[in-house]
Amino acid sequence: MQGVVKVNSALNMRSGPGSNYGVIGTLRNNDKVEIIKEVDGWYEIRFNGKVGSASKSYITIVN
């Protein structure tokens, strides 16, 4: 499943599904990500070869 980031500035990509996990990357508006699965309001995603988590509130699913 594919998604597109929708933010005003930037979205942190984290090492796990929650804001208490470390930041491993930064996503910008309109970045395209691969959604692997949903976990507690977060998506596990793949972006630029990295796997991490980002809040699903800022990612829109595209077909």
Rank of each mutant, 00 (worst) to 15 (best):
I45H: 00
V5C: 07
S55A: 13
K56D: 03
A10P: 12
V4P: 02
V7Y: 07
Y43T: 00
T60C: 14
E44L: 15
S19I: 14
L27G: 01
N48K: 12
K37S: 14
L11Y: 05
K6P: 01
P17D: 03
V5Y: 01
K32P: 08
Y43G: 00
Y21S: 03
R46N: 09
I24G: 02
S19N: 14
N8Y: 10
S57C: 15
D40A: 09
A54T: 07
K37N: 12
G52N: 02
Y21L: 03
A54S: 04
V4E: 05
V39D: 07
I35L: 04
V7T: 14
K6C: 14
N12Y: 14
N20D: 12
K56P: 04
V23T: 07
F47E: 00
I61N: 03
I24E: 03
E44V: 15
A54P: 02
S9W: 11
N48Q: 13
T26I: 14
R14L: 11
R28S: 10
N29K: 09
D40Y: 08
I36C: 07
K50L: 15
V5A: 04
G41M: 07
I36S: 03
V51C: 09
I45E: 00
N63S: 13
S53I: 10
K32H: 11
I36Y: 07
Y43V: 04
I35D: 00
S55F: 12
K50P: 02
G52Y: 06
I24K: 02
N63H: 13
D31Q: 08
K50V: 14
N29V: 07
M1Q: 11
Y21E: 03
S57H: 14
S15D: 10
N20G: 12
I59S: 00
G25K: 05
N48T: 05
E44S: 06
V51F: 09
G49H: 06
Y43N: 00
I61G: 03
N12A: 15
E34F: 12
R46G: 03
K37T: 10
I45L: 08
N20C: 13
S19V: 14
I35T: 01
I45A: 01
F47Q: 02
M1P: 07
G25W: 06
N20R: 11
G22W: 08
S57Q: 15
K32E: 10
M1Y: 10
A54Q: 02
P17M: 05
V33T: 01
V7W: 05
Y58H: 13
R28K: 13
F47K: 03
I61T: 06
G22M: 13
S19C: 15
K56A: 12
G52T: 02
V33I: 07
S57E: 15
M13I: 15
I45M: 03
V51N: 07
S15V: 07
I59T: 00
I24L: 06
A54G: 03
S9Y: 11
V5S: 02
Y21V: 02
Q2C: 15
N12T: 12
V62S: 09
D40F: 09
I35Q: 01
L11M: 11
G3K: 02
T26W: 09
W42S: 01
S55P: 15
A10D: 10
G52P: 01
S9E: 12
I59M: 01
N30K: 08
D31G: 03
K6W: 05
Y43L: 06
G41V: 05
R46I: 14
N8E: 13
V39W: 11
V23K: 07
I24N: 03
K56C: 09
N8Q: 12
V4C: 13
I61Q: 06
L27P: 01
G22I: 12
K56S: 11
M13T: 01
S55H: 15
K32G: 05
M13F: 11
F47D: 00
K56T: 10
V33A: 01
I61H: 04
N8H: 13
S53F: 15
I45R: 00
L11A: 11
I24Q: 02
D31A: 08
G3W: 06
E38D: 07
N12M: 13
D31L: 04
R14N: 03
N30A: 08
G52S: 03
G49R: 05
S53V: 12
D31N: 05
Q2A: 11
V51P: 05
M13G: 01
V39P: 02
Y21H: 08
I45F: 07
K37V: 06
P17A: 06
N30H: 10
G25S: 07
G18Q: 02
G52L: 04
I36N: 02
N63F: 11
K32M: 14
K32Q: 12
F47S: 04
V7D: 03
V33Y: 04
E38K: 04
G16K: 02
M13S: 01
G16Q: 02
L11I: 15
Y58I: 05
G41Y: 05
M1G: 07
I61K: 07
M13E: 01
M13A: 03
M13L: 13
A10M: 13
E38W: 06
G18D: 05
T26K: 12
N8G: 12
I35F: 03
M13Q: 01
S53Q: 06
S15R: 08
Y58E: 09
K32L: 15
G18P: 02
R28G: 07
K6G: 05
E34L: 11
I36W: 05
T26D: 04
V51Q: 10
G18W: 00
V62D: 09
G25Q: 08
T60K: 14
I35S: 01
V39F: 11
V5N: 01
G16E: 02
G49Q: 06
G16F: 02
S53H: 15
I59H: 00
N30T: 05
S53L: 14
Q2H: 13
E44M: 15
E34P: 01
R46T: 08
I61A: 06
S57V: 13
S55N: 14
G41H: 06
E44N: 10
V33S: 01
N29L: 09
Y58G: 13
G16S: 03
T60D: 11
N20W: 14
I35C: 05
T60A: 11
N12L: 14
N48C: 10
S55C: 15
G18S: 06
I24D: 00
V62G: 07
S19H: 14
K50G: 06
N20F: 10
G16N: 03
S19D: 14
S57W: 13
V7F: 06
Q2I: 15
N20P: 03
L11N: 02
S53Y: 15
Y21R: 03
I61S: 04
A10L: 14
F47R: 03
G49I: 04
V23F: 04
V7H: 10
G18H: 04
E38G: 04
P17Y: 03
A54Y: 03
M1F: 11
W42F: 07
V33F: 05
G3S: 02
E44C: 15
V33C: 05
K56R: 08
V23I: 13
